[in-house]
Computed example of a mutant assay.
Amino acid sequence: MRQLRMAVEKWLAPTSAASVRVTRLTGSASGRQGVRVEIDGPKGPISLHFFRHGDGAWQVFPPARASLTMGAYAAVIRARVAT
């Protein structure tokens, strides 16, 4: 959770007087995780959604979805020619 705290400090810059709250936890069957973090701003609450990426980092953008891919390769077969 240390990385989440660092991301919150980077994006929301809370002061010692502002309280930081995690207002929503999200998760899915595919393993995507996220939290909504809220602080009290001068004109009302400010919130951002942070997404956890595969490397453990928390970012404000969601991780890219893994898409199905199909690949093909050609095998080169060399025939030995008897001389």
Score class of each variant (00 low, 15 high):
1 M>R: 01
1 M>A: 08
2 R>A: 11
2 R>E: 15
5 R>I: 06
5 R>G: 04
8 V>N: 03
8 V>K: 02
9 E>Q: 15
15 T>V: 03
16 S>D: 06
17 A>I: 15
17 A>F: 08
18 A>N: 12
20 V>S: 03
20 V>K: 02
20 V>R: 06
20 V>A: 01
21 R>F: 11
21 R>L: 07
21 R>P: 02
23 T>S: 10
27 G>N: 10
27 G>Y: 08
28 S>R: 05
29 A>L: 14
30 S>K: 15
30 S>I: 01
31 G>D: 00
32 R>N: 04
32 R>D: 01
33 Q>A: 07
33 Q>W: 05
34 G>L: 02
36 R>S: 08
39 I>K: 03
41 G>D: 12
41 G>V: 09
42 P>T: 14
44 G>R: 06
50 F>E: 00
52 R>H: 04
52 R>N: 03
52 R>E: 05
53 H>C: 03
54 G>D: 13
54 G>A: 06
55 D>K: 01
56 G>A: 05
56 G>I: 01
57 A>Q: 14
60 V>W: 06
60 V>M: 13
60 V>G: 05
61 F>V: 14
61 F>E: 13
61 F>T: 14
63 P>C: 05
63 P>S: 03
65 R>E: 11
65 R>M: 08
65 R>I: 08
68 L>E: 14
68 L>F: 12
69 T>E: 11
69 T>H: 10
69 T>G: 11
71 G>N: 06
72 A>K: 09
75 A>G: 07
80 R>E: 15
81 V>Q: 10
83 T>F: 04
